[in-house]
């Protein structure tokens, strides 16, 4: 078997991530592929803690910390600064789901519409984990968080951010998962080779926030794909949708849900509702893919 994941470790060991952090894995794979000629614009998110604290930094490339809603616009500024000085650098906005789906969506949309030459990566752990598990626009239907308590779990589905990004007709959009590093690497390579705004959503389980066993991070990320809760795809120019990991025999969502305390309160009806929603979203996706 050919090894497709670059061997060089750029990220150091001494980071502050929790045990089993999907976001730390996402960063590790990302830096392996993008290499050292890369700069990160990091808004408020778990990674504003994971990298430090001052004067330490775990990533061995420049990190510019910025305000919560400003990952994309700061990256646009950094890119313009480099360009006018004749420097060719990969500029990456690296944000969590709160900083992407919610507070940062305006700056992200602005950058994508202008087609600024940046790679925006959202490591998606489906809630505000750094502040202690509050719901975000990415939190899935019926999930528990500290602001969607068991008596009133999330009553709305996860925001379909990928379709929003596709509507920008930007050159490249992809979803990826820490359970499929070869697929992630391939998408990062592709994103790196394209000019303009590129958007990558990396599914990154959070054991403390999901009330899951840290040893199950990769298992959960894999189950999310195998149950079609999270689909691996890429979109070119906003119109050309393609599934990169086809699931022949999808598993029932309960296999994914039952390993997570955030879904412990679900009734059978709830599980059926989530299953129905997954089927419905899959059909919508198939229409876009044209299959």
């Amino acid at each position: 078997m050919k090894l497709t994941i670059p061997e060089e470790e750029i990220m150091g060991h001494g980071h502050l991530a929790c045990q089993g952090c999907g976001g730390a894995l996402a960063m590790r794979y990302t830096l392996k592929t993008l290499g050292r000629n890369t700069v990160l614009s990091v808004p408020a998110c778990c990674w504003s803690v994971i990298d430090g604290p001052f004067p330490h930094s775990a990533v061995n490339i420049p990190v510019f910390h910025t305000a919560f809603e400003a990952a994309a616009s700061t990256a646009s500024g950094i890119k313009a600064g480099f360009e006018i000085q004749g420097k060719d650098v990969n500029v990456v906005a690296w944000a969590g789901d709160g900083g992407t789906y919610d507070i940062g969506i305006q700056a992200l949309s602005g950058a994508a519409e202008r087609n600024d030459d940046i790679l925006y990566i959202c490591y998606d752990n489906e809630a505000y984990m750094n502040t202690g598990v509050q719901r975000s626009g990415s939190t899935p239907l019926k999930a528990w968080t500290t602001t969607t308590p068991v008596a009133h779990p999330k009553d709305r589905p996860k925001k379909d951010l990928i379709s929003i990004m596709a509507a920008h007709r930007m050159p490249y959009i992809a979803t990826a998962s820490v359970a499929y590093p070869e697929d992630l690497t391939e998408k990062l390579e592709k994103a790196k080779s394209i000019k303009g705004t590129r958007f990558l959503l990396i599914f990154s389980p959070c054991p403390p926030g999901w009330r899951a066993d840290p040893k199950n991070t990769v298992k959960l990320a894999r189950l999310a794909v195998e149950t079609k809760v999270f689909n691996l795809l890429e979109i070119e120019n906003g119109l050309d949708w393609r599934i990169t990991k086809k699931i022949r025999k999808p598993k029932p969502v309960i296999e994914y849900l039952k390993l997570q305390g955030r879904f412990r309160h679900l009734t059978e009806d709830d599980v059926s509702l989530i299953q129905e929603n997954v089927e419905k979203e899959w059909n919508i996706l198939m229409n876009k893919v044209g299959e």
Partner: peptide
């Protein structure tokens, strides 16, 4: 002018893009 004009979508982004560009050593 030998300069890049970024037509941002808000003043908040105008300032954060300014900060990012200035941090690379550009005059903003």
């Amino acid at each position: 002018m030998d300069a890049k004009f970024i037509k941002v979508e808000s003043e908040h982004s105008a300032m954060t893009a300014s900060i990012g560009a200035s941090a690379t050593g550009a005059r903003v």
